[in-house]
Simulated assay, not measured.
Amino acid sequence: MVVTASGVFRRTAVERADQRVSWERGDQAFFSSGACHVLAWTCRDFYPEQEIALAALYLGDFEHPLHVYARWGTWAFDASGWNPEAELLKVNSDFEGRPVREVETITSDLREFCEKHVHRQPHQYWADPTERARAYVGRYDPPWG
């Protein structure tokens, strides 16, 4: 799959206001914008034998992340599947028209991250997206073979 900037799938005002409308988007759109953090945590949990880290992209002076993804070595996993992390950073910078600010490694758990960055926890969605995220992660072959 080709790396696509998360901003391509930004939620509309209706999708932000109505969780069911947001939920009904296709998987790539849903996990690119609105549930990327759930997908990242699910990816890490899906491969407990691997040292998968979680990372957040920031844009400009924004206090909260633009996008969250899983990282393994030089590889990144998000709604575009597994791709070189450098490509993920480039497409997001190009789409936004400016460089993404430093990538931050996330060390908190999902609940703490959501509270700090005003993101929904899985139980706060129209339906819990965890199983949907597990199925999505399972579609992609990991880079370690």
Rank of each mutant, 00 (worst) to 15 (best):
L39Y: 11
A133T: 09
R20T: 01
E112P: 00
W41Y: 15
E96C: 12
I106W: 03
E51C: 02
T74D: 15
G34D: 06
Q121E: 15
C114S: 15
R111M: 06
Y125N: 03
N92F: 01
P99F: 05
P142H: 14
G7M: 08
E63W: 02
F46R: 11
P48M: 00
E115S: 11
A13K: 10
F30A: 04
G73P: 03
F9P: 02
E85D: 11
C43I: 07
A55D: 07
Y140S: 11
Q28C: 05
E15L: 01
I52H: 03
S22W: 04
C36M: 05
Y47M: 04
D78E: 08
C114V: 11
M1N: 07
D61Q: 10
V118R: 15
G81R: 12
T130H: 09
A76Q: 06
A17Q: 12
V103I: 12
S6I: 02
D94I: 01
G145I: 04
A86M: 02
K116A: 13
E96R: 09
V137E: 13
V3G: 00
I106M: 04
R71K: 14
S33Y: 13
S6K: 05
W41F: 14
D94H: 02
E49N: 09
D27C: 03
P122Q: 07
L88C: 08
V8I: 12
A53H: 05
Q50A: 07
A70C: 07
Q28G: 00
Q50K: 11
N83R: 14
A56S: 14
S80C: 07
A55L: 09
A5F: 06
R25K: 09
F30N: 04
E104Y: 06
A40K: 02
T105Y: 13
K90D: 10
C114N: 12
F113N: 01
G145Q: 13
R20C: 10
N83P: 02
T12N: 06
R44A: 13
L66H: 13
L39P: 09
E51F: 01
W23T: 05
G97Q: 04
T12M: 04
R71C: 11
A29I: 00
Y140K: 05
P65D: 02
Y140T: 06
R98L: 12
R132D: 10
G73C: 11
G34E: 05
D109M: 05
H64V: 09
D128W: 04
P143D: 14
R120E: 01
P129D: 12
G138Q: 08
Q50E: 13
P122C: 08
E85N: 07
A86Q: 06
T4E: 11
G60M: 08
I52Y: 01
Y69T: 03
E63K: 09
M1E: 12
